[in-house]
Amino acid sequence: MIRVKVKKKLHGVKGDFWLEVDFEMGAHFVVLLGPSGSGKTTLLRSIAGLETPQEGYIEVNGSVWFDSKKGINLPPQKRQVGFVFQDYALFPNMSLLENVMYGMKIKDKGKALELLKKVRLELLKDKKPHQISGGQRQRVALVRALAREPQILLLDEPLSALDEDLRATMQEELKNFQREYAIPTLMVTHSWEEALKLADRIIRIEEGRIKEEVKPKRTPLKFIDKRLEGEEVVLTVSIEGKVWELSINKKDLLQGVSKIAPS
């Protein structure tokens, strides 16, 4: 169980405001959703120990990482987090394998190779980060964070630098990873679509405050057929045993579907 209570003064474009949030989470995929400048990244960095809140309490699986009342403030080195930065922050002077092994408490080459294999990069293990593509870098950053065996995975807009197609693939991969390792995951994004796809729970933040919490419902949807009618894409799917035809405008499809009306 993870408890996060943070109060920190932020300097925004429209003046100063307080980041003031309080929530608990388990081994779920929680998405922090909000516009840029709303304090999401600061919250993530506060949990990692890269920034110090004025007041607050952070407890992860029974150990207290931060308690302003008792003057406890563990440095980032002592907090077991897996942090994936927006631009990945892979070490340019190390090979992919060295990057993955860097944070391991016990250097285990076999395990590092296994992790790289999981993201299909074992053949590139001796390459340097600048020799691989953006999506590949993202995967290395993810397994490097996992290699540390963190108590919590913190993802700061990890997919924002990728193009559309790749982002969809990586979203799936990220979700599978989180399920497999059952690791508490907190991801920052400003995209509703991404939040709905990945989250077990969405915490929406605006101007430093929690606006609302959403639990996206997932209805098992089985794909049967698709066809094109003019500008409309018609999908035949089955939801809970019933067959539906969904027609979606092509334009909407490209922008991401916001609502689906059965026809």
Partner: peptide, 15 residues
């Protein structure tokens, strides 16, 4: 040297 390389190293437990 980008700040986040340094921070990444700290979050990976290095002094």
């Amino acid at each position: 040297v980008p700040k986040n390389l340094i921070e990444a190293s700290w979050t990976l437990g290095k002094s």
